[in-house]
Structures are given as C-alpha cells and as structure tokens.
Design a protein around this nucleic acid. Structure first.
Lengths: 347, 347
DNA sequence: TACAATTGCTTAATCGATTAATTGATGTAA
DNA sequence: TTACATCAATTAATCGATTAAGCAATTGTA
C-alpha cells in the first residue's frame, strides 16, 4: 500500500534550516529553557504545521523507555461485565494519555501467559489484570521483573499486590441475610468450581450468613459448576435440587451466567421464580428487568472498580518504591426486587 | 518501580563474545543464509536462553516500519454486539501475530478522529473500523495517507473502501415478509435517526417489503429515535403508536437496544408481546430467550463478519496495490420464534 | 582591555534491532 | 606464486526522537 513516507523531525529541520535538536525542543515546549530564539521557534512551529507533522510514538517510546501503553488482560471481553470494565478502563486511561492494549484469554492461564509475554515485549508500562485461575506464577514473575500491575475484580490473598475488588464476602452475606429475613430457610447457592478467591469469598459469605442465622447448610444446597460446561452441569444440579425430599426455597446465583442458564432450564420446565424458589444473582444484566419477575441482584460498581484500578496503576508508574501496596475493597449494593420478595408474599 | 534493565541483543553479544549482528541473524532463524558457524549459533541460542532474552518489539517496529498492531475503532465496546466483535477480532488477529489496540468512541466522530490520530502516531499497520456518523472525512484522510483499513458492520456507499457488512436491506426485507406471511398488515419499524447507511438499508428493506406486499406504509408506522435519548423518545413513540386509531399489529426493531427499551415500556403498561403486537428484532441477546415470549430476531454472523474483516485487512497489509477493493456482504438469518407467530395463533 | 556570562544553535550519542557492505582468514585452482 | 572463492565474522548505517555537551558570537562587567 506504499504508505507515504511520514514527516519526521528531520524534514522539519531541513525545511527550516536548523538542526533536529532545535525542532525537538520547540515541539516539546522546551523552547524557553533550551534558549531557542523566538523567531526560530515560530518558524519551526509554522513549518511543523505546514507539513502536518505527527510525532512517531514508537521512536519516542524506544528512546524514553516509556510507551504510555497499558495492557488490559481480561478473561473474556465478550462477557458484558468485562466489556464494561474495558470501556471504563479505556476511557480513564485516555484521559491520562495512555492507550489500552487488550488481551482476552478465556479464563485460561496458558493463554494469559502468552498475552502477557507479547505485551511485555511491546513494552507496556503496566498491567491491569483480571486474573485467571492458576496465574499466580505469572504475577510473581511480573513482580520479580518490577513491572507494575493492578489486579481487578479478582485477587490472590497470598500475593502482596495492588488490587481493586468488590467485597464479595459481604455481598454474598448480605444476600443471604436478605433471603433469611424474607422468611426463607432452605437457601442454595450456585457457584463456579474454581479456586479463585472471589468465588471462595462468595461461598463463604453465603455460608456465614446461614450459620449466623442458625441455619445448618444441608448437603446439596451448595453446587459447584464447572465453568467450561455450565449448561449441562446446571441442568443436572437443578434437577437434583428440585427432586430432593426437602427442596430449597431460595437460591443465590454467584454469577450472571449461572442465573441465565438456570432460568433457561426452569423455563423449559415451566417453573417460575419466585414460585419455585426465590432468587438473588450477582452481576447486572438487561434481562433482570425483562424477565417475567424482576431479579434481585448484587450490584457491583464497575465504574468505581475500573476507575480506581487505572488510577492506582498510573500513580505507580510514576513512583519508584516497590514496597507499598494499595488494596481497595469496594462495597456492592444489594438491589432487591420481586424475585426475592418475602416468602409470605409469594402466591 | 525501577524496572530491571532488560536483556538486549548487545548483552547476548557481549556474553557470547560476538557482534550483535550475529545474534540477530541467529535469533531470527537466518543463521544458515547468513553463514553463521554452527557452534557459534548454538552458543548464541544457549546464552539467549540463559538470559531469558525477550525481543524489544518497539525497537523492531521502529526499524522495520511495521508494528504488527491493528487499531480497532468501535462505537462502544460496552455494547455486547461490539464486544463480541472485539473478541473475535482479537482472537483472529492474534493468530496472525498481530496485537489489537482498542478505541471506543461513543458514536462520536470527534472522539473517533482523536482515537485515529493517536493510533496513527503509534504506527498501527491498519485499522478495522465500525464507523460513527460523520466520519467519512476521516476515512478519506486514511486513504489519502495510504493507511489500510476495513470497515466493519457499517460502510459508506459513496466511498470506495474495503468493507464487510451484513446485507441489511435483505435482512429487514425478510423480516417484513415474514410478518406479512404471518397475517400482519400493519407493521411498524423502530429505527435510529441517523444517516448511517446500514440503518437506511434496514429502513429501506422494511419499506420494500411492505410495498412488495401491496401494503401502503401509513404515517406513524416508521419511527426514528435519537440514539442519545432512546428511552424517552421510545416511550413517546410507543404511546402515540398504541393510541392511534388503527394501531400497528407488528413491529420490527432495528436494533437490540430499541427492543429492550420498548419492552421495558410495554412491561410497565402490562402489555405483552405478541398480544399487543408481534415483534422481530435485529441483533441477538440472552434475554430474547428469557422474556416471557421468545423474541424472533435477525441473526448476524458476528463471527464471520469479524473474521473476514481481519483477514482482508491482513491480506492488504502485505500488498502494494491500492486500487482493488474487497466488499463483502454477509447474509443474516431470520430466527423465528413465538414473538412473531402467525396472527391467527395469537390468543 | 580582558574575562565572564549569556544567547542561539549544532554535534553526536543513545534507545534496540536489522542488514548491506566489508574484512580477514583459509582453502583451492591455475 | 598469484588469483580467486568460500567461510565466518565484524562494522556501521539506519529507523525517529531526545538531550547532554560543546561551540561561536554577542553582550555585560570590572
């Protein structure tokens, strides 16, 4: 495509009859401190304008060792939750003159390693990472290489890193207590079968809510679903749960996706929420409003999460001390709707 | 954060007692053709391994004039349709060793100009663009600069560019005919008020379907909604349409978002689809399945759209002739569900 | 008058990788 | 012995921008 040769400092220098050094000074606003003559400066600016000079950021980066680029490593950009995060991260970063490079990695540690490597080689200044299971090693590597990063939404308690996460324990706990307060006593939870800490926290919050309410968690109430085989495993789990001698009367879905798939299954059976059981889900979704019964949910502040993460990262990029970490835990809000209305009110 | 100095070719050269040239040859697999001694080559490889050498892609780019980077300019990454596109584009590009830089620009030509500028300065090799209204000028600029790009999902018929789009006219036409076949005669359409060609095509397809069916489009059937004020304008439009003397009995929603907002409004009034009117929507969404009545929709092949776009772009990057353009129009599939079942079957 | 300070600009090294041109050593044929 | 391949490596320019150091010419000061 024979891209036209771009205008460089040299071209400006040539045309204005000065050295590239002067041009560089002037275009970077260092005319004063570098003692460039006023007329010369004006001439250079004019020529730059005429030639429509655009700086080559690649060259700038090579020279300065700074790329003004942030790597955003994310489980799956097609997931609306992450897409929203990406959007905010992009917005905020742009405000600080940073560009985002995205890498989607399917909840897969191997892919994430790959993505990281490429981004490191591209000399991103730092990372914002929504970690996949089993990626601790990679994070340790980053630390060892002194490459700054901030974990978003998920973190590893055994690693001393910056992070910005939702207080998942509390969110799940609140959801549990809310259901108990509504008169429900047989409360199930649908979770992913993963060691990721945020999921553990949700489970623990649920367990603690039951425990603190004097309810003994029965076998079969807590279901762990393999996230790469959601649909089938959900169907099986629900079938079992509904067929039990003493079936549950409420359910906490620890993710959006689990709720969607469950409701699809219930629909097929002609079962309705909250008649079959009350429900609270994590995450937000358009359809929470459109389903025959509005779904109660734990609302995470995506805006705050993403904004904080970028800000912490960018602050770190300008710092030189490795030893302080910033760990932010953001409260979620429980939005209660008809799907978890008091048991007594359900026909 | 005192990032540890990275290992460069020079370091390897020093440690293996050769020049950087040799190291470069060997690490790029040009040992043979550049007649590097076998033992020397082996030694270099080993040292590179030992030092965990990672190439500096910035330096490579500067030297080669090629960044292996693609700019993806998109209206709004938080929109699931675009998020899905982003995901596929990212996937496919990675296969070809390209990295994606994303820029979300809120359907705003000014923002998109900005995003483009930054990406050009970062020396992306080419663009994949989901254009915003009023961005023709920018595209002309790209052409003039001989920067390759492929338009995705939306194109400008007056510009001779590569593009990959859905056959929107046909899709809307099919939707219209489908409704007519179901016995509907008073068919409305909800569209965005924009000059963007894909929207014009959807409107035209709808109009042609009515015309070819011998139906005269009545005033008030076609509603154009300002996309920056969707919720309010939809409510007003629907109110009018429902209050009409002879209200519509079917509706084509030309985007997902228009359908969502309309259904929210109908819900509030306690009105149901297809009882109040039958419906077909463009786009896909999880909630189409979860709504009390599964929604018929025009299914675009996001996979194909995105994959084709990347492939065309990458092919162009290796070519030098400006004059051939590749214009791909992909057929959508009409997925018919209960929301548009024959009028006679609706209770 | 002599030296210092200031002004306005240039030179050249640098970031890391690539690659055409060149060198020097060894081997081979006339 | 001379001429010429062949092999294995090095040198140095280059991509575009930045910046410390240096050089003249002019102005200021004692």
């Amino acid at each position: 495509m024979a891209r036209k040769k771009n205008v460089s400092l040299k071209d400006i220098a040539l045309k204005s009859g000065v050295s590239t050094a002067l041009v560089s000074y002037v275009l970077n606003g260092k005319a004063q401190e570098s003692r460039v003559g006023k007329e010369t400066a004006a001439r250079i600016l004019q020529v730059a304008e005429e030639l429509n000079y655009q700086p080559n950021l690649i060259a700038k980066s090579l020279r300065s060792g700074k790329s003004f680029t942030i790597g955003l490593v994310i489980a799956d950009i097609a997931n609306p939750f992450f897409a929203n995060i990406a959007r905010i991260v992009d917005d905020v970063a742009r405000k600080y003159n940073y560009t985002i490079i995205i890498g989607s990695c399917d909840e897969n540690a191997e892919k994430s390693a790959n993505v990281l490597r490429v981004m490191i080689n591209r000399k991103v200044d730092g990372f914002i990472i929504v970690s996949s299971e089993g990626s601790e090693e990679q994070l340790r590597y980053l630390q060892q290489q002194h490459i700054p990063f901030v974990l978003l939404d998920r973190h590893f308690p055994q690693l001393k890193t910056d992070y910005v996460v939702t207080d998942n324990h509390r969110a799940a706990y609140d959801a549990g207590i809310h259901l108990v307060a509504g008169g429900y006593r047989k409360i199930g939870m649908m979770a992913y079968d993963t060691t990721l800490f945020h999921m553990q926290e949700r489970i623990k919050g649920y367990q603690d809510a039951l425990h603190d309410s004097g309810i003994v968690l029965q076998e079969g109430w807590l279901r762990k679903i393999n996230q790469f085989n959601v649909s089938e495993e959900i169907n099986a789990a629900l079938e079992e749960m509904l067929r039990a001698d003493d079936p549950i009367d409420a359910m906490i879905f620890s993710t959006n996706d689990l709720a969607v798939n469950s409701i699809k299954y219930l629909n097929r059976l002609g079962l309705k929420i909250p008649q079959v059981f009350a429900a609270v889900s994590f995450g937000q979704a358009e359809w929470f409003d459109l389903y025959q019964c509005p779904i109660s949910y734990v609302k995470q502040s995506v805006d705050l999460l993403a904004t904080k993460a970028v800000e912490i990262l960018i602050k770190n990029l300008d710092r030189t001390d490795d030893n302080r970490v910033e760990q932010v835990r953001i409260n979620a809000t429980l939005v209660t709707r008809a799907s978890s209305r008091p048991k007594a009110d359900v026909l």
